[in-house]
């Protein structure tokens, strides 16, 4: 494809990204570095601040449990799920904006989302994280990494691999326009299990890959091998998703009050 077409594709995906994803990397980094006119996030660093901070957490789907400390961990886990389900909807809208995506076989669209969406969500989490913690609730709350590590097992094991990945991923210093293309590349993976018609998916991905390569050359002229480094991250991502799904399966078996959101159940069932 012509360079002008590749640039137009990059612009289109960046616009869709800004339209569907409410918390951009630019905004998240501004909040994390304190360079923002907005409110400083509420910090959750222990059970007491978790209970205080719950008023800020988007919890539309949470059943009304009583406010006891012993259920706080599960209740927090439920509000995370609710936000994740909303994020899946955002990613779906973004996927539909990728030129050619909605023309693919509908079953293949489902497969691409089923396998791609957790990878996309993990990439989107990276800009919200630093080595000390993560923004949640649209940037209104900062939850410390130490607090997440202090939760009882297996909850304490859920976020640590994402922090390790994110801290490394953030050193690549992608911006939101780079991220938009990378997310589209992830979604358009032609090797997902059960795809019916791989060729058109690979063709779409190839065009987006060309656009990403050009984007990185123009946007990061001094960052050598950035394109190759980024593609290598896709391998790490698959392992993180596999481990995450296994952890959720463990939770389903061991937690009596465990409720898994129906959309997340659909995505994780028979995934890996």
């Amino acid at each position: 494809p012509e360079a002008a077409d590749l640039r137009a594709l990059a612009r289109h995906l960046y616009e869709a990204y800004l339209k569907y994803f409410p918390l951009t990397k630019a905004k998240a980094r501004a909040i994390l570095s304190g360079k923002t006119g907005e409110k400083v996030p509420f910090v959750i660093h222990d059970m007491k601040s978790l209970m205080e901070g719950e008023q800020f957490i988007n919890c539309r789907q949470i059943p009304s449990l009583d406010h006891q400390q012993q259920v706080s961990t599960l209740r927090f886990f439920h509000s995370c799920q609710s936000r994740s389900a909303e994020a899946v909807r955002e990613v779906t809208e973004f996927a539909k904006s990728i030129p050619g995506f909605i023309d693919l076989d509908l079953n293949d669209q489902v497969t691409l989302l089923k396998y791609g969406v957790i990878e996309v969500l993990i990439i989107m989490m990276s800009p919200l994280m630093n080595k000390d913690g993560t923004l949640i609730s649209y940037g209104q709350i900062f939850m410390t990494r130490e607090f997440l590590k202090s939760l009882r097992k297996p909850f304490c094991q859920m976020m640590e691999p994402k922090f390790e990945f994110s801290v490394k991923f953030n050193t690549l210093e992608l911006d939101d326009s780079d991220m938009a293309l990378f997310l589209a590349v992830i979604i358009l993976s032609g090797d997902r299990p059960g795809l019916l018609n791989v060729k058109p998916i690979e063709q779409l991905q190839e065009t987006v890959l060309h656009s990403l390569e050009l984007q990185l050359k123009l946007n990061h002229p001094d960052s050598l091998q950035l394109f190759a480094k980024l593609l290598q991250k896709m391998t790490d991502l698959r392992q993180i998703v596999t481990d995450h799904v296994h952890l959720i399966e463990l939770l389903k078996k061991t937690e009596v009050d465990m409720f898994l959101h129906p959309l997340l159940q659909e995505i994780m069932k028979d995934l890996y």
């Binding site: 789907q61 609710s82 389900a85 909303e86 899946v88 909807r89 779906t92 809208e93 539909k96 909605i102 509908l106 079953n107 669209q109 489902v110 989302l113 089923k114 129906p262 959309l263 659909e266 995505i267 069932k269």
Partner: peptide, 20 residues
């Protein structure tokens, strides 16, 4: 198709199709 009912709905409807 039944196995991925909500994903199908999300893909086929553009505005708030599912009560998440």
């Amino acid at each position: 198709k039944e196995k991925h009912k909500i994903l199908h709905q999300l893909l086929q409807n553009s505005t708030s199709p599912v009560d998440l």
